[in-house]
Design a protein around this nucleic acid. Sequence first.
DNA 1: GTCTATATACCGATAGAC
DNA 2: GTCTATCGGTATATAGAC
Lengths: 195, 195
Amino acid sequence: MGAPVVSGTVVAGRSTKDAIRDAALQLFSTKGFDHSSLREVADAVGITKASLYYHYASKVDLLVAIIEPMFDEVRTQVEGLDEIAHTPENVRAVIRERLRSTLANRKVGALCMRDTVAIVNALGNRYPDLIELHHRTCRWLAGPHADADTLLRATAAMQVLSTAMMSQEIVPDTDIDHIEATLLNAALGVLYPAR
Amino acid sequence: MGAPVVSGTVVAGRSTKDAIRDAALQLFSTKGFDHSSLREVADAVGITKASLYYHYASKVDLLVAIIEPMFDEVRTQVEGLDEIAHTPENVRAVIRERLRSTLANRKVGALCMRDTVAIVNALGNRYPDLIELHHRTCRWLAGPHADADTLLRATAAMQVLSTAMMSQEIVPDTDIDHIEATLLNAALGVLYPAR
DNA sequence: GTCTATATACCGATAGAC
DNA sequence: GTCTATCGGTATATAGAC
């Protein structure tokens, strides 16, 4: 909206590019990726669609800007698993680390969880190994030479972690460390059943 | 494609209407609801888009035909919860029943899970209490006068059950009764933590 | 960097012949 | 019940002035 600009940064502290990304995340989260138009995103920011194209080359580029930081974080974590021995303490540490980044990126995570098909379709072959990264995490959690039952429980444990993305809606007045502790224990309980 | 028809039923045993529903489920599951066109559905069946409209009044009507049976099943289960005492045996029975219908409807369930935003948007106000039904289930599982921690664990337990929808991909050679037993115990473990 | 105006394409849905 | 043809709407994306 013609705000004063110094080398690409709005004086207020947030660039137009960032404002577009934030508005798009909000819109994609509520209406879905396919059902959100770039005109709506531009309206939310207070610019026109044509101006938006100055900052992002395409709708998919905008989506990538939103989710790439989280994907990179997950990728780094998963690729590091190869060097971590599968001990009970390390399993606990790995789950805790994933839980922390899930909580930190919960808004983007919820978008990916609730609009998976549309996003996967839009990204096409840009992240061909994304699902494989998730499977690798499950396989690492299950441990070497795990049987089918253990692999199923490892997948269920990962599902428990995804509860973190909805935690603000479910228990809004609970502090984040407590949520982390509860879900960590729950996931470990699924992975190592008492009975 | 002009197959002989007796009172709405193709002689082969499956009506065109059913074929459209099945093709749509397949297409919606892979490409998402918004990104799937009725032209593609019609092409998969071998008819034109106009013929499809003879069987279903709108794209949303087609979606409803796919998901309504599962929704009705869930609704019946949740509305019956009011009359069930919250005892450990009943909690186990309720989880088992939900697990069974989740497994029975896993293809439709996976569609709803992976394309939530688009489907909720398309349905609009047709099922205004759908999310509330899920919350009621979580609250019943947590029990009367439950604290925030228990409610969070009840939600996580429901997430464990959703693993059933992916079970065929994760452990394809495991029989369904074993999957049911494993996930039932996992969900109970989350709800009643040992530590 | 932002604008107006537009090219191009596909969508859901309908009309009407057969 | 299925078809061809088309309407009205909206989407992404671009051209070019300022």
